Amino acid sequence: MVNQQTDDNVLAVGDTLGAEEVAVYRWLALHGQLDLVRMAEETGVDETAVSSAVDYLVRIGLVQRGKEGDDRLWVVDPHLVAAVATAPVERAIAEQQTQLRVFRDQFAQLASDYKEGRHGVSTDLETIPGLTQVRAALNRAAEQCREDMVTVQPGGTRPPEVLQDALLRDSQMLARGVRMRTVYHHTARFNSPSQAYVATVSALGGEYRTAHQLVDRVIIFDREVAFMTNRNDRLGAVVVREPSVVHFLYELFEQVWSQAQPFSDAATDGLEAVAKDLDRTILRLLAAGLKDETIARRLGMSLRTTRKHIADMMQALGAESRFQAGVAVSARGLLNDDGEPDAAPTTAPA
């Protein structure tokens, strides 16, 4: 029993009735008089608890006593008591709804002014500053999405709180019949929160694949609007609505999707096999002359982890420089004519 009385000793919304109070109220409703011994016997509540329950029910207004010397008790309609208890809350809600309507009306006028000011200005490209605004725009686009959402999600890890927010949004879209496909970096297979998220949403109908190399983040809704990372503001986004550009980005996603692999737990695939596959990709990127920072970004790995892989591979090749590593790769025939690695020096998974 939570006893949070108001000044008038009326039941408040936060108060609850315990099993003892409920049993005593029912007995009084049927008999209408105070008989502690009989009440205790028939309700299974001891006399002390019965007396306390009666006092509490009287105090909150569910029971009324007779005049002095009258041991009769009258129960009060609980709907009336509830109406009194909820009245302050309903008034507060009504006030907040009024404030909300005023707020929305003001911003509706601002939106009208915004549209008027942008009349004749192309809306094919829009810049959204700040993470909070980007999330709001993504949520709005997700609510309006009807058929299809595709995402390229680089990086090996995503914070659990971000995945929790995405879970609600994605589950709502899937429930509406929206097809949802996402490509992660292979390194996401090592991230437990990502594994749990993918397993949950896959069961709802989401589709997930992974690839070693990915372009920057892009999200496309209904082949009509695309969100891209703002190069000058990594927390912001660029929204593209120009049909030809959105079509190009969508076709680019389809190519990445067709070459990606179904999302799977790295441990299930075998850590050694995954490590060898990763080393082959790093070897190809090294052969292309890419810098450590570029390789790390392409593979969705931290720069520190990428450099450790490169150092381990150079040690396995017996090379002290990238030039020597290139000579060793060529001498061992580790790259075929297409620049693809036939094999790679084995390193331990990081």
Rank of each mutant, 00 (worst) to 15 (best):
N3M: 06
Q4R: 10
Q4P: 10
Q5M: 14
T6V: 07
D8F: 09
G14K: 13
L17P: 00
A23V: 06
D35R: 09
A40Q: 11
E42F: 01
V45M: 01
D55T: 06
L62F: 06
R65K: 13
G66S: 12
G69F: 06
D71W: 10
A83R: 13
T86I: 14
T86V: 15
R91P: 03
A94N: 07
A94F: 01
Q97G: 10
T98R: 06
L100F: 11
R101S: 15
Q106K: 04
Q106W: 05
F107E: 07
F107H: 08
Q109C: 00
A111K: 02
R118E: 08
S122E: 05
T123K: 03
T123P: 00
T127W: 10
T132R: 07
Q133V: 07
Q133N: 12
E147C: 13
R158E: 15
L168H: 15
M180L: 13
V183P: 00
R189G: 05
V201I: 13
V201P: 04
E207T: 09
H212Q: 03
Q213Y: 01
L214N: 01
F221G: 08
R223I: 12
L235I: 02
G236K: 01
V238I: 12
V238A: 10
H247M: 11
Y250H: 15
F253T: 04
S258P: 00
A260Q: 00
D265P: 05
A267C: 06
T268V: 11
D269Q: 06
D269H: 06
V274A: 00
V274M: 06
A275Y: 00
L278F: 01
L278V: 01
I282V: 09
L283S: 07
A296E: 01
R297I: 02
M301Y: 02
L303M: 04
H309K: 03
H309N: 08
D312M: 04
D312K: 05
M313A: 10
M314V: 04
A316V: 07
G318L: 02
E320L: 03
S321V: 05
R322S: 08
G326T: 03
A331Q: 10
R332N: 05
D337S: 04
P345M: 07
P349A: 00
